[in-house]
Amino acid sequence: MLIFLKFIAAIALLACIHLFAMAALGRWWGIAVRKVSLGFGPRLLSLGIFHLHAVPLGGSVQFKDTREEGVPLDKPPGYFDDAFNHKPRAVQVLIPLAGVAALIVVALVLRQGAAVPSLIHGFAQFLTGALDPLTTGRQLVGGARDFAGQHAFLPLLGMLAAKLAAMNLLPLPLLNGGQALLTLVTRDLRETPAWQRKLTAVFVWVWLVLIASWLSAILAYVEER
């Protein structure tokens, strides 16, 4: 139970770092932040733009974006100045990557020489574990559990920071890597093309399948124990 709580605490803390890095960079560039949500599921607490949900794993930052909010007919002067989708392309690429950069910094500080190999291996581990949950995935869950049992909280935090950074760099539209990639290939950043909406809808299901596969790996490991 203690190891489980260590994992939850570490992932929740890293999610906060990840989200606040993106929100802070957005504000620094003059973008209005509508909402910062930690976790998912039922909302437990709201403090201004900050929202805490029941399952503190992951989260999201919602910026002012006229593609989602629309444009009022009586828009005041400068209405677009603080909108995410009216910022330069470089800004729209760098903001989602800021969260990943913050995780990499945490990994480098806490794991030093092991951070980069852990990050590089994280890409393959996430995908191979999802494709073979009952064998590879179960073994990876067991390895993570053994690591947590043998190390204190800070080394665990560094290891998870590297793995979460790798996961978020995957080219899926719901993840930072995919968001940055879509920004690079989209012609008009002020509007969302139909193909992008369809692609995102498809990859929502891909993401759900990957998460379900990892949940089955965790359950297989728990049953084995």
Rank of each mutant, 00 (worst) to 15 (best):
His121Ile: 06
Leu108Cys: 09
Leu127Glu: 05
Leu134Thr: 14
Gly113His: 14
Leu110Lys: 07
Leu127Phe: 13
Leu110His: 02
Val116Leu: 15
Phe126Gly: 09
Leu108Arg: 11
Pro117Trp: 12
Val116Asn: 05
Val106Met: 11
Leu119Ala: 10
Ala114Asn: 09
Leu127Ile: 15
Gly122Tyr: 14
Leu134Asp: 04
Val109Tyr: 07
Leu119Asp: 08
Ser118Cys: 01
Gly129Pro: 04
Gly122Ile: 11
Val109Cys: 10
Pro117Leu: 06
Ile120Ala: 13
Gly113Cys: 00
Ser118Asn: 09
Gln125Thr: 03
Gly122Ala: 08
Pro133Asn: 06
Ile104Phe: 10
Leu110Asp: 08
Gly122Val: 10
Asp132Phe: 07
Gly129Phe: 11
Pro117Ser: 10
Leu134Met: 13
Gln125Ala: 07
Gly113Ile: 00
Val105Phe: 10
Ala107Trp: 05
Arg111Glu: 14
Pro117Gln: 05
Gln125Asn: 09
Leu134Ser: 03
Leu131Tyr: 06
Arg111Tyr: 00
Leu131Pro: 01
His121Asn: 05
Ile104Asp: 02
Gly129Tyr: 10
Phe126His: 04
Val106Glu: 04
Gly122Gln: 10
Phe123Arg: 02
Leu110Tyr: 09
Ala114Pro: 04
Asp132Ala: 11
Val109Gln: 07
Leu131Val: 11
Val116Glu: 07
Pro133Arg: 05
Ala114Val: 07
Leu110Pro: 12
Leu127Trp: 09
Pro117Ala: 06
Leu108Gln: 12
Ile120Phe: 11
Val106Tyr: 05
Phe126Val: 08
Val105Cys: 13
Phe126Leu: 13
Phe126Met: 12
Ala115Thr: 05
Gln112Met: 11
Val109Glu: 04
Thr128Cys: 07
Arg111Asp: 11
